[in-house]
């Protein structure tokens, strides 16, 4: 997504993004980003938590105005509740095809 953000910004439209993997965002390099410690699929938090969703958007609106240096990645303070972390329920129901593919490749290699 960082690639799209860069191209939209290059076209003259200022952009801000959230990131769940700041490690990647730092490599791709985007003008403005906010890192948030939430599980995949939930950049704006929990479903139906309208207040938190709005709060995160408002952080973005504020930082869009205040960030002055290209490449800035700020950390947002939100925490995923510990009891929900234990549920580990953000994984897809089945492994993505690439995981199965890599496991098969590995199995073939080990057979040789």
């Amino acid at each position: 997504m960082g690639l799209v953000q860069r191209i939209v910004e290059e076209a003259g439209i200022p952009t801000i993004s959230l990131t769940l993997l700041p490690f990647i965002t730092r490599k791709v390099k985007v003008p403005r980003a906010l890192a948030i410690e939430f599980p995949f699929g939930h950049p704006f938090g929990k479903p139906f938590d309208n207040e938190q969703q709005l709060s995160i958007i408002n952080d973005g609106l504020r930082e869009l105005e205040s960030i002055q240096e290209a490449g800035t990645i700020l950390d947002l303070p939100y925490k995923w509740p510990e009891e929900d972390f234990k549920k580990q329920d953000w994984w897809p129901e089945e492994h993505p095809p690439i995981v199965k593919f890599m496991q098969e490749q590995l199995a073939k290699k080990n057979k040789k």
């Binding site: 953000q5 200022p14 993004s17 990131t19 993997l21």
Partner: peptide, 10 residues
């Protein structure tokens, strides 16, 4: 006529 874009990966 968009002036700013807000993006979020998953």
């Amino acid at each position: 006529g968009v002036d700013a874009a807000f993006m979020a990966p998953v």
